[in-house]
Nucleic acid binder design. Structure first.
Lengths: 133, 133
DNA sequence: CTGAATCCCTCGCGATACTG
DNA sequence: CAGTATCGCGAGGGATTCAG
């Protein structure tokens, strides 16, 4: 069994990750760096939702942008897309088997976010008020 | 003690998160959705690095973009920035106490990325070849 | 209902030059 | 070395329309 610390070090460019594109962290960075990816995955955790179900939960997202994010997640095999040939059309999204493996990560994110908020309340900071990343 | 599942549900817009901006997941989404944030935090885990140390580890990042990402992380109090008034200038970056709390998350990301890569090798997929998110 | 396709414009981002 | 400042292009993303 390789320790977490060892794993960590192998991922630094200057250390053992010969090819940058084979680094697990680079992969995760790419997969998650969409503007709504984390929220979408979170909403799909343990559920299957239709397009508008997701859209309704994401304030200020346009149909075009949401479609893009969903396509991207689908390309990465984290979510599946099921089209029912009925009228009106019915399209369902859910986590793939691979996608489900990210749920513990999402839950830990939630824990971190809660911890962060708690500290934030005490210090009167305001993270959410900035414009971009 | 509240269960993970309960925590999870409280975060869905349609459920208990009255104010969207107070949802821990929305916060995490905002904090992490930068294009290089995860990699920067990862490189700073347990280390203190100078500007060029970070730049060297991030292929194809411009000085301008890196500065932006660093400023953003600093605003969110995840990293600190220490300027030494010497010549030539010396500026060091590292995780704050708050930032260090994200390390377990990063390590779990690494684990997920590794798992993902393993599956990817078997199925001959190619996540890293797309253009954007 | 769930898209795809256009139009159009902002601004993200790279390139370059300059400063303490 | 570690930045700011400026310019300029092209992609990102909004609004709207059309389609199955």
């Amino acid at each position: 069994m390789i320790s977490s610390k060892e794993m960590h070090n192998t991922c630094h460019m200057s250390d053992k990750c010969i090819k940058y594109n084979e680094c697990p962290m680079v992969l995760v960075q790419k997969i998650l760096s969409g503007k709504r990816k984390i929220m979408i995955l979170w909403y799909l955790s343990g559920k299957i939702l239709r397009f508008n179900d997701i859209k309704r939960r994401l304030p200020d997202v346009t149909q075009k942008m949401l479609t893009q994010q969903l396509r991207s997640l689908e390309e990465d095999h984290l979510i599946f897309r099921n089209v029912y040939p009925v009228v009106p059309p019915r399209v369902e999204y859910g986590l793939t088997e691979l996608g489900e493996k990210i749920i513990p990560l999402l839950e830990m994110m939630h824990g971190f976010g809660a911890e962060y908020l708690e500290l934030n309340l005490k210090n009167n900071n305001d993270v959410g008020m900035r414009k971009t990343n």
